[in-house]
């Protein structure tokens, strides 16, 4: 008896709730885009917005036009390279140099292959905030840096001018440069990109002097037009001996790396990745939408793809 009553009450409650239940799970069947031949590929996403722009657009096109399943993995570069070996990573869409890793994974272990340039040019160098370039126009020549060294003194630079270095991920020659160019500066490690950007913001806003290591393309250039210092120009081979470097950083041709397995798979996605190429401006557009306008990577990609159909068609070989 008791049990029966219990069940009765329960059913009543359930029914009452069900009345306002609304839409049922699975009522809307997800649109299944076919494209079985594309399959799944793992895309590493390195921790900077420019890369995220690349990844957003490629993933969007691969999913929408080719019906692939793209698994994005947020990884530091070094870890991503390891991933080629373990099969955890198929595609890296923006590689900055890393000759040592190329040697290891492409030549020695043969688990990865190059997949051509992204078309984006990478520039590394020393930058000052815009107000400084205006106030001290001749500061952009490295020869004048010693003249202004006192301006850049901070609590960290032990009486010399401070040259703020960046994210530990990036190779820097700055200590060698300071020494070999006889600059009265001390390299101070900011330790992260976040710290660099914050330092530039603060410097520009409060008109504080700042000299720091930075790089393009970077979404931050949408917010602030940093001015590059002209170091002695780069000539091939001038950076051969790390301790004796006295010239600017080489221009980087950012390229794509894919796993050997993926390259051999014959997937249309590989063709897309291989053909993918755009410009610094394109990347900055998408990066700005993500970083400043706060769109999701997918929304940003959709918007850009709509406006640049011809480029996308070229990648797809249409």
């Amino acid at each position: 008896m008791k049990k029966l009553r219990y069940a009765g009450v329960l059913t009543a409650v359930a029914l009452a709730l069900a009345g306002c239940g609304g839409e049922k799970v699975g009522a809307e069947t997800p649109a299944t885009t076919g494209g079985k031949e594309c399959g799944t590929f793992n895309l590493t996403v390195s921790p900077w917005v420019g890369y995220e722009a690349n990844a957003a657009v490629v993933a969007y096109v691969a999913t929408k036009d080719l019906g692939c399943k793209v698994v994005k993995k947020n990884l530091k570069e070094e870890i991503a390279w390891q991933g080629f070996g373990t099969g955890e990573v198929d595609v890296n869409l923006e590689n900055w140099g890393h000759e040592d890793l190329k040697k290891k994974y492409i030549e020695q272990e043969q688990v990865a292959v190059e997949a051509g340039s992204t078309g984006v040019k990478g520039v590394i160098g020393w930058y000052v905030p815009p107000w400084m370039a205006q106030t001290y126009p001749d500061i952009t020549d490295w020869k004048n840096l010693n003249k202004y060294a006192a301006l850049f003194k901070t609590s960290e630079s032990s009486g010399k001018g401070q040259l703020l270095d960046g994210d530990p991920s990036y190779v820097t020659n700055d200590e060698a440069l300071v020494k070999n160019l006889s600059l009265n500066y001390k390299v101070v490690q900011s330790g992260s990109e976040t710290a660099l950007i914050q330092a530039f913001r603060d410097a520009e806003k409060n008109k504080k002097p700042l000299l720091a290591y930075f790089y393009q393309p970077q979404w931050f250039f949408n917010e602030m037009n940093l001015v590059k210092i002209n170091l002695p120009p780069y000539k091939a081979g001038c950076d051969a001996v790390p301790a004796k470097i006295a010239c600017d950083y080489p221009p980087y041709d950012l390229d794509k790396i894919v796993s050997k397995k993926f390259a051999d798979s014959g997937s249309p996605a590989y063709t897309l990745v291989k053909n993918f190429q755009w410009t610094n401006e394109d990347q900055n557009d998408v990066a700005r939408m993500i970083a400043v306008d706060k769109l999701t990577p997918d929304q940003a990609a959709e918007k850009w793809v709509k406006d640049n159909e011809s480029k996308v068609n070229a990648w797809l070989g249409k």
Binding site: K76, E77, W81, D100, P168, S169, Q189, G191, T194
Partner: peptide
């Protein structure tokens, strides 16, 4: 090390990032 302390902290972070 990520906010300017440099030294060991930076060394560890760099070791993680640069092979």
């Amino acid at each position: 090390g990520l906010v300017g302390a440099g030294a060991l902290g930076y060394g560890v972070a760099a070791g993680f990032a640069q092979s």
